[in-house]
Simulated assay, not measured.
Amino acid sequence: MESITKNRQPPAVLRAMIERAYGPERVPHGEGWARELGHGWFNVAYRIRLRDGAEVVLKIAPPPGVEVLTYERGAMGTELAALELIRKHTGVPVPAVDFADRGHELCDADYFFMPFIDADNLDVIEDRLPAAERDAYHERLGAANRELNSVRGTAFGPLAGPGDSSWRRVFTGMFEDVLADGERRAVDLGRPYATVRAVLTEYAPALDAVVEPRLVEWDLWAGNVMVREGRIVCVIDHERAFWGDPLIEAGFTGTQLAAFGDSSAFLRGYGHGALTENETWRRRLYCLYLVLVMVIETDYRGHTDTRQYDWARERLTEVMALFGRTGP
């Protein structure tokens, strides 16, 4: 996926990073030892073959001169913190961190190395799978997501803080941040920003039902799940994690917006029944936040075509209709 946030580096810099992480004896020679992994939208990632044949992945944060959405600032630090929490408190398989460097001496951004995961990306293969096999993977994903959400925090908000005892305050702050990001770039939502804010104001009291902070991935789509022989062997890309309401997780999105797919298998695996009335309104607020991010981030990514923007604008119309807002 193409994005101006991808901080590509020349071979000499990549070699210097490898030497710092693994030592000079493992720095590769010649050509063909690095290739970019193109699936992600935000960070650049390279698959690298070391001199001894071992394969690793190098992930580099966006360059400092590229403006990102407010919630994306410091994302690599968030991912490293999330990986530590997950390894310490759950059995969900996540990448090991071989080496992390946040000193900005070799390049202008944070980076880290992890082992290459030899497995299939679920998003890439699921359309080719028999329905029963695809559903089984999503049931396992639901169970894994529940285990991640079992990790309890002491306050809502970013993993690094500051925290807040009120989920309503934290979520409305997140929501306002993305609206401010959109207004700063004059991103067209197809309706006034004030109309969207009015929906949040009206339905925000539903958020008060959430009183216990839980570890939330928020970005746990099929594209971040690596599978092999019926098993989930690794969950990747944790830079959007925070302490929040588990109902905001990606797997619940299809309960309100059919375009995001059928959530039934995920819900079975998670062990979650039909949503209550309060949960339904919360989930609709989370859908609204998600599609706002998807619309507004296209400007910050510097997308050269409008496919994501157009698709997300349609979803914005659909979710606003769930709140009874059918006009501009």
Rank of each mutant, 00 (worst) to 15 (best):
V211H: 14
A119H: 01
Y203G: 00
M76N: 14
W281S: 02
E25M: 13
G173Q: 12
Y286T: 02
L106W: 09
R214V: 03
T195F: 06
P130K: 11
D310G: 05
P205L: 00
E239T: 12
S3K: 10
D101Y: 13
A54P: 03
G163W: 00
I248A: 15
A155T: 08
R73W: 08
H104P: 12
R268G: 00
Y46V: 04
I248D: 09
S165F: 07
V178L: 15
I125K: 03
T70H: 09
R231Q: 09
L316G: 03
T298S: 14
D110Y: 03
W281L: 15
G74M: 13
G324H: 01
Y22K: 14
Y193F: 14
P95G: 08
R102W: 04
G327A: 10
S150M: 08
L85Y: 08
T326W: 05
Y286E: 03
D127F: 08
P205S: 00
R20W: 07
Q308S: 09
R307H: 13
G38A: 15
T5H: 15
P328M: 07
A258M: 07
G142Y: 00
T276A: 07
G142V: 00
Q256M: 10
K59D: 12
R87L: 03
W281P: 00
D120Y: 03
H29L: 08
L122G: 00
E249Q: 12
N121C: 01
D177I: 04
M294V: 06
I18G: 08
A265R: 04
R307L: 09
R152A: 13
I60W: 14
D123K: 01
N224F: 06
E126H: 07
L292Q: 03
L129I: 07
L106I: 11
L159G: 12
D108G: 14
L267A: 05
R73L: 11
N145A: 05
R152M: 08
A132Q: 15
E277K: 04
V13T: 10
P63G: 07
H303C: 08
D127T: 07
A209W: 01
L159P: 02
L220Y: 10
V233K: 01
M174T: 07
D188G: 05
T70S: 09
I236R: 01
A81E: 14
L106K: 08
A194F: 10
L292S: 09
V13I: 15
A119C: 01
P158F: 02
D118C: 03
R87Q: 10
Q9G: 04
V44Y: 13
E126G: 00
R140P: 01
F260K: 05
M76K: 12
E67R: 15
L69N: 06
T78D: 06
V227E: 00
V319K: 06
C107H: 12
E277T: 07
A75H: 15
F260R: 14
A144G: 06
M320S: 02
I296F: 08
F156V: 02
G65D: 15
H104W: 11
